[in-house]
Design a protein around this nucleic acid. Sequence first.
DNA 1: TGCATTTCTTGATATATGTCAAGAGCAAAG
DNA 2: CTTTGCTCTTGACATATATCAAGAAATGCA
Lengths: 190, 190
Amino acid sequence: MTELEHYINSYFGIVNTDDLNTISSFFKLHKLEKGDFLLKTNNRCDKLSFIQSGLLRIFVNNDEKEITQWISTKGYFATDLSSFIFNAPARWNIQALVETELYTINKEDYKKIEDLVPKWAEIEKLFLVRCFTILEDRIFSHLSMTAEERYHFFFQNNRELFNQVPLQYIASMLGMTPETFSRIRKKQLL
Amino acid sequence: MTELEHYINSYFGIVNTDDLNTISSFFKLHKLEKGDFLLKTNNRCDKLSFIQSGLLRIFVNNDEKEITQWISTKGYFATDLSSFIFNAPARWNIQALVETELYTINKEDYKKIEDLVPKWAEIEKLFLVRCFTILEDRIFSHLSMTAEERYHFFFQNNRELFNQVPLQYIASMLGMTPETFSRIRKKQLL
DNA sequence: TGCATTTCTTGATATATGTCAAGAGCAAAG
DNA sequence: CTTTGCTCTTGACATATATCAAGAAATGCA
């Protein structure tokens, strides 16, 4: 079973084996080398990928500065949703931080799933609502927590990441400078 | 045509009149007085409402402090999505800031729409993706903008709100204290 | 109309976080 | 190995924002 099947199965345990096969048969495995881009800003994003292994960074250039919006790990989907669904210009860059294996489906095939798997709309909805909730939590963390608290909270839940990616990216996605990040980090060690 | 029909029609102009009628027939109009709660934390949220007129504040109590997560105006949906979809305990309080008219549908009826309106799944998806994108932008604003910039940006797009609700709530949803909000406001007037 | 309550503003001050600049530590590439 | 870039850390300092406390203004209510 691929990570993809495993993911769908465990999160949305409402899919029978046939449907699972149908869905996953549309996803093609391919590989990104470290540094490769899955997507660049202003292009159209016509595919949706699922991370089998590796790490992707979602970021954007904002007057001279790079803002990291998110780092996606194994088990996450990666796409520019508004571009994928609405055909809008992509808002994000997506780049591999390490060699990364992806299961990818193009938009055309994606549309076919709806017809072949009646439950797909439901799965899709649950998936979107889950994503929505995660974003709500993230906003809440910015309304209610200090940089230090955000660091702490993220560290608790994503320890592994801290020795896999440049820390400046984590700093950025938590909304602080690398220097602040470094100082908070030092404090935690004492 | 109700605000609801107008909304569905203009945003997702893919619905024919019959479907529009079917959908909106499930929504019942009712009224909240100022101060009334549509939802309280930890309850189950088994309905989804659409604001015909008025204002709702989505907030939560966070050690002694209230954090306003969002203020919903005419044309917005209001619900606790994760509670509505996953039957989880509600994460948010939703309270009317002024007398508010709502079109509300309960979960049972909501499920019926899927069967009656084949395009519903698609509408729902587009709606969720739109919401998702708005939240992405909000997160981005916290990663890339100062309090003053967030104020400015929000003011540009929501002028009307500023003389309709206590400013402290807007301050909170923008992630700053009422004092900071007040000082920024003063600066803008000069 | 006037009292009570809530909301907003302001000043003084504290704290958190950002900026800039330099150097240290590491890791990839010759 | 050495060199060359990155990345991370650190210090000094600047700035943004929070906190606390008081009073002013606005609002709702009797």
